[in-house]
Design a protein around this nucleic acid. Sequence first.
DNA 1: ACATGTGAACTGCTTCACAGCG
DNA 2: CGCTGTGAAGCAGTTCACATGT
Lengths: 218, 218
Amino acid sequence: MNSQARARLKRIAESTVRRLSLYLRFLEDFEQRGLETISSDELARRGGTTSAQVRKDLSFFGSFGKRGLGYSVPELTTRIREIMGLAQTWRVIIVGAGKIGAALAQYGGFFQRGFHITAVYDNSPNKIGKPWDSHVIRDVRFLERDTAAERPDIAVLTVPAEAAQATLDRIVKAGIKAVLNFAPVQLQAPPDVTVRSVNMAMELEGLSFALINRDQPG
Amino acid sequence: MNSQARARLKRIAESTVRRLSLYLRFLEDFEQRGLETISSDELARRGGTTSAQVRKDLSFFGSFGKRGLGYSVPELTTRIREIMGLAQTWRVIIVGAGKIGAALAQYGGFFQRGFHITAVYDNSPNKIGKPWDSHVIRDVRFLERDTAAERPDIAVLTVPAEAAQATLDRIVKAGIKAVLNFAPVQLQAPPDVTVRSVNMAMELEGLSFALINRDQPG
DNA sequence: ACATGTGAACTGCTTCACAGCG
DNA sequence: CGCTGTGAAGCAGTTCACATGT
């Protein structure tokens, strides 16, 4: 049974997908260091999980290992890339050419693995037409027109909070099915559009909660 | 039973904590609009969850509502702030004065709610001594000395991936118990230190997975 | 002998449904 | 009567443990 067929059998948990990302990162590290095989136990140790978890995660997509031996590093790398959709290149647009967008573009080889920025938009006359990381910032008015022609796959939303929902609505209407949101608001989107949010304020609040709920000495 | 005592009874799920953050954001919005009371149903609708989930989340910390009526907006806001540890101010240091750190500081009133930046560090001679958002960038050599004196509560780690683990080790050794990591690596920390990671590459990969696993037409 | 692959058991989060109370 | 608060039921994700294959 091939991995794509298997994947469609049952909904894959988000936690599984996150761990696959993690394993992939380790595998690339191992690959670079010339390692030939790797065990579920080793992957687990690095990822802070258990070997059973690693094997279960992979089992949703097929059987990639050799009993008594482990997994071939290059093979498993390739398989996970395929599973995650990283064997192809995705066209990404950035909407909102502020500081976050800028940080993004230079973030640790961020857009290496199959993500290619095809356009950057803003609505500020001060920014439109200016160069931006080998692109020229476009007027966001042209979002719909450009999208029809260039068919980007993913939109990264880095506009101010107040504008986020309205901008998302336009992105959705234009037919883009995946959005990475950096605005600190909860967005509403139809079920066929996947929205992932990175909300730094929420992460900090999680730390705050952890700090006051640690077991005080005494 | 007061909320802090109750909270310590049982470990609170991370998902619950995330939703509390979300509810708080909605409550602040309602408060600003002058609303007096709010039902679990309304909070659920805005947060994309169910009213039972909202009530269960709150029930871990006490009973804050009035039957037949709902929750007092100002009261519930205050209670959640207390629960989350946002009634106090946390001292935050930023380690790594690159683009991400800069984006962070201006990110939608990011450091309003109880988070106060007390120092910014870098190791680059080009940056040390330069002004940075009402601070002067300090030499990271002084991290330990400063921490002993100024006792920051949270460290935001925005150094390059290669330096992240070593820098975290220093932060941990200096006695800081909460870290928000932006480097795209899996970090190892002792169990009494809470590390939350924001990994944008991983989020993008999640979108990639969602895109190739959508039910194709035909 | 050793590490995978996987049903079965378990744990814990979510949803249900209704008693309790304003 | 309406909405909360909460045991109980349901479900999903994790862990266990062992049969399986090399």
